[in-house]
Design a protein around this nucleic acid. Structure first.
Lengths: 116, 116
DNA sequence: GCCGATCGTTACGCAAGCGTTTCTTTTATA
DNA sequence: TATAAAAGAAACGCTTGCGTAACGATCGGC
């Protein structure tokens, strides 16, 4: 089920959502952090630091730091993998799910309000 | 012409675009910078520092710094307003227009590839 | 012409992200 | 069992963005 957008709609949607997100959310996640968060919540687990780093095309410390930040915000959680204790499994949280649910609503509403 | 999206489509679109943008673009504009850039290019001029600050709901130094950064990247330009020399008029650039055109294409393509 | 108001910038100390490198723990292999 | 490899975190110096406060330049009203 593809989404067909005109150039005006595409940029207009991004514009409206970015604007509203800046105005409303004090947290101000970076694009990388947002990409990581969405990857964790939209792609089936398990998620590891190394896996996320490869998917995003960034180094591992970037993922570690992003998880530190978003963990402090309660958006994600980390648990040792007991089957291979070198790994860390990144877990979703209720707060993170709520955050993305609200963000999804924001996108939907701004898309609905587009009048270009 | 509204855009109707399901929650999966909304978050899936944001996910795909963010991911691709992280992988491809080394510039890594913040959400605020992106919102400012889109405001400049999608809303009829003139744009001033104060106006952008009010629209975004942020302080003026935030705008000044964002314009510094994006100006260094060639994405925007600044010109003194000769009618009221206190003002600075923010100008669009060819490079900025190309940047957003490519970004719009990215959104359109990722939307088209959505298969949720 | 003066003086308060407005506009954008700059300065300051601080927090957060970056890339690279090093370290610790754990696992796999010879 | 000794050793190499792998995963994630921590350390390092650096860059960039932040909020607040102060600043110089310019305008408008008296």
């Amino acid at each position: 089920m593809p989404v067909e957008l005109t150039p005006s709609q595409a940029l207009g949607l991004w514009h409206a959502v970015s604007l509203e997100q800046v105005r409303v959310d004090g947290r101000d996640l970076t694009l990388r952090q947002m990409a990581i968060l969405l990857q964790i919540y939209l792609v089936p687990p398990p998620h590891t630091v190394r896996g996320l780093a490869m998917t995003l095309g960034v180094t591992k410390p970037v993922i570690t730091r992003a998880l530190d930040t978003m963990g402090a915000l309660g958006l994600v959680d980390r648990v040792r993998d007991e089957r291979d204790r070198r790994n860390v499994i990144i877990k979703r949280t209720v707060e993170g799910a709520l955050y993305l649910e609200k963000f999804g609503d924001l996108i939907i509403n701004q898309g609905r309000n587009l009048s270009l």
